[in-house]
Simulated scan of single mutants.
Amino acid sequence: MKRLWLGLLCGCFSLTANADMTVENVGFATPESVEYSVKTDRYYVANINGSPFGKDNNGFISLLNPQGEVEQLKWVEGGKHGVVLNAPKGMVAIGNRLYVADIDRVRIFSLPEGKPLLEIPVPDASFLNGVTPASQGGVWVTDSGVKEGFKPNGKDAIYHISPQGELTTLVKDMDLGRPNGILEKNDELLMVTIGSGEVHHFDLKGKLLRSEKMPFNRLDGLIEDVTGKVIFSSWTAKAVLQWQDGEAPKALFENMQSPADLGLDSQRNRVLIPSFMENKVWIRDLQD
């Protein structure tokens, strides 16, 4: 396919005929997740900017438009305008709120303004990571249960946070395989793991229903596209893959270094893929 290279004042990206883009050289600093907001029709990129364990208040969130242009590199920035943001990871946009996992608490910012609204501490949490909407309202959030060096610390967990900020522990176990991406689908919670390379299925009361072992580990982002297909990323496979019960995962996009927490542009059926190590974001069209 013929590829056009366009240089922009805010950075550069590659553009193909089907609108696949790579946003790079724009100032991203350890981008861990990308989230799409239907309300604003914009992409939000969580930048750790240092250690994923560091409470250094220098994390930031970038604002992109669907053309791949950076409208504001530091739309929300730790240490500025009353914002505290250390090492932002998973995010989810629900209406006029953006929920952001930040080590041991979930922070909520307003959309489209980016003003800090609320923070919900999660006692005993060590590495809050994946976030997804809950059908009962609010969000589900995972704790990967790791400490410096990504060594397990026995704090693997799934929590629920209500729209009012009330915290409930759904699952807390010594070994869930280091939880990461999470998705509610068909009255189940699907959760992928970093260490064990599994997809766990829970009911909405926290009972483990079953688990599938993937052929690789270091699983990260987990989303559902507009057709209901489940998509996840794997650092080990260096790929973004499509998967359903009883079938082997199918690679959609390969040769990707450190593909982290995925987002979905539901208006255009695009997957949004941050490269944790390479400070870039891939925007890739999905097949209908």
Rank of each mutant, 00 (worst) to 15 (best):
P116Q: 13
P116W: 01
L118G: 02
E119L: 08
E119S: 14
E119Q: 15
E119R: 13
I120T: 15
I120C: 13
P121R: 15
V122N: 03
V122D: 01
V122I: 15
V122M: 04
V122T: 04
V122P: 00
P123Q: 09
P123H: 11
D124V: 12
A125V: 12
S126I: 04
F127R: 00
F127E: 00
L128Q: 02
L128Y: 02
N129A: 07
N129S: 12
N129C: 11
N129L: 10
N129I: 05
G130N: 02
G130M: 03
V131Y: 03
V131Q: 03
T132V: 11
T132M: 05
P133W: 01
A134Q: 04
A134K: 03
S135E: 13
S135Y: 04
Q136C: 07
Q136L: 13
Q136P: 01
Q136F: 10
G137H: 06
G138N: 02
G138K: 01
G138L: 07
V139K: 02
W140F: 15
W140Q: 01
V141E: 05
V141A: 09
T142Q: 06
D143I: 11
D143C: 11
S144C: 13
G145L: 07
K147T: 15
K147C: 12
E148R: 15
G149E: 08
G149V: 11
G149R: 13
F150K: 10
F150S: 10
F150H: 12
K151A: 14
K151S: 14
P152W: 02
P152T: 12
N153M: 13
N153W: 10
G154Q: 13
K155H: 14
K155I: 08
K155C: 12
D156C: 11
A157P: 11
A157C: 12
I158F: 08
I158Y: 06
I158V: 15
Y159A: 03
Y159Q: 04
H160G: 10
H160K: 14
I161L: 13
I161Y: 04
S162P: 10
P163I: 00
P163N: 07
P163E: 12
P163K: 09
Q164L: 11
Q164S: 15
G165N: 11
G165R: 09
E166H: 14
E166G: 11
L167E: 05
T168A: 14
T168C: 06
T169R: 03
T169E: 06
T169F: 05
T169W: 02
L170E: 08
L170G: 08
K172P: 04
K172C: 07
K172L: 06
D175W: 08
L176D: 01
L176G: 02
G177S: 10
G177D: 05
G177H: 04
G177L: 01
G177E: 03
R178L: 08
R178I: 06
P179F: 02
N180I: 07
N180K: 06
N180W: 00
G181M: 00
I182N: 00
I182G: 00
I182L: 09
I182Y: 00
L183I: 01
L183E: 01
L183D: 01
E184R: 01
K185H: 13
K185L: 13
N186V: 08
N186G: 09
D187H: 14
D187M: 09
E188S: 15
L189H: 01
L190M: 13
L190S: 03
L190K: 05
L190P: 03
M191Q: 14
V192D: 02
V192Q: 01
V192S: 06
T193L: 12
T193D: 09
T193C: 11
T193M: 10
I194G: 05
I194D: 11
I194A: 10
G195L: 14
